[in-house]
Design a protein around this nucleic acid. Structure first.
Lengths: 229, 229
DNA sequence: CGCAAACTTTGCGTTTGCGCAAACTTCTGG
DNA sequence: CCAGAAGTTTGCGCAAACGCAAAGTTTGCG
């Protein structure tokens, strides 16, 4: 077990109101694990045996259609809980979680969930806020998919990624994990071809710089404009 | 105040595990109100002053884009709680609720929420199950919007409506509240024209019968097939 | 009873973005 | 250092669905 201490969890939403001993106790019951890029943390429809906290990296939450197409529902940034099926009364995971970059997660057996909720004041509340945010995001996704054109959807998707995991570099803001055109297409409900064409065009205009698996937004302001009113 | 008794709430999820006196107490604090078709129960981004239980009718949960287009996120069937922003740590409503048919709702001031959760065992759990179901539905919507063609989306939307509020009639199963092509288009992210064309075609094939504001699915099995694998 | 409003149908031209195909570039492992 | 895998670019043709327009139908209200 790697050395972990209270200061790690302290700033994160579900733990912010707990005292050191509580956090210590929670930490002691956790398992830490490193994930390679592309590896699966848990799979849709399997028994929700654990819930997770992402310490480092980014998780892609995907669903796979009967035709085998992948759809990315959500990206989880470092510092958030995920796989918390139990909080919504489910006993299987509703989607698959894939590591978008290498990363580290803590996990606890799901059976501890109810105890944490009962024992630690504010734990549930903070968790439900996170879920609330995700519901909001999903809602926004539905609205976007219903009303916007591919160009706007891709612009917004990039902005979301930048906001969640952007790193400042000299040329602009870079998305903090490796991402392919295919990935972007799965987030926006389009094809990698269309994404490629669009990114090429944007690069010519100086809006972005894109290398293999890497996208840097140079002109966020103009990107926002493209994203729609 | 109309006469309400325990038997009304008893069978509904959040109350199923409470005893008569608890339900009585909850009921005593509620306000009952009738809504006309098309009237707004609450509006997006306004302070979440109440939460609601739909006793009769159907609620359409919509978001309005900056361009003024409406997108229907969800339909709430009779018997469910809604407007429970508080449960997800929000203090404003994330969407607008419109009565799709006339109906009756009970409401409580939001400040009572935390008390209910604390006081009544199982109340929160059951509520979160409902939310979990809705999250699942939204997820499915995203996947559909990403991967399916208009025809499939409309087929599925109709099936969802039929499942939620279908009434058996001699010709098939009829959607239990008035619904226009416009409404269907707002559920599926398309235009009323496309919906009209498609429904006309389906009617010619005997798949459905549609009158003004009324749709009856005659051949649900074939409709499922149209909805995709 | 008649008019206006709400809802529906249908036609036609246009466009967006997909599907397919092929070539090209960058990485990785032996 | 080379071969193959993984990722990207680009061209071309096509079909789904939109946008616009106009006319038809049903309903409710005065």
């Amino acid at each position: 077990m790697p050395k972990l201490d209270e200061s790690l969890l302290r700033p994160l939403p579900p733990f912010s109101k707990l005292d050191d001993s509580a956090i210590r106790a929670i930490l002691d019951q956790s398992t830490s694990r490193r994930f390679e890029k592309g590896s699966t943390v848990f799979e849709e429809a399997t028994a929700a045996e654990s819930f997770f906290l992402l310490l480092d990296g980014t998780i892609r939450v995907v669903r796979i259609t009967t035709e085998g197409e992948q759809v990315t529902a959500l990206h989880i940034p470092a510092g958030q809980l995920f796989g918390i099926a139990r909080a919504l009364g489910r006993d299987t995971y509703p989607a698959t979680a894939v590591a978008a970059s290498e990363g580290v997660v803590l996990s606890w057996p799901t059976r501890l969930w109810d105890g944490f909720v009962a024992q630690y004041e504010g734990f549930a509340t903070e968790t439900y806020k996170t879920i609330g945010d995700r519901v909001g995001e999903m809602n926004t996704r539905i609205v976007e998919m219903s009303t916007q054109h591919v160009e706007q959807r891709i612009a917004r998707a990039l902005l979301r990624l930048v906001k969640q995991s952007g790193k400042k570099v000299t040329e602009g803001i870079e998305i903090g994990f490796p991402i392919t055109r295919q990935d972007v297409s799965e987030m926006t409900g389009t094809t990698l071809h269309t994404v490629s064409r669009l990114l090429s065009a944007w690069e010519k205009e100086g809006l972005i710089i894109s290398k293999r698996k890497k996208i840097t937004v140079c002109d966020p302001h103009r990107m926002v404009t493209l994203g729609g009113t």
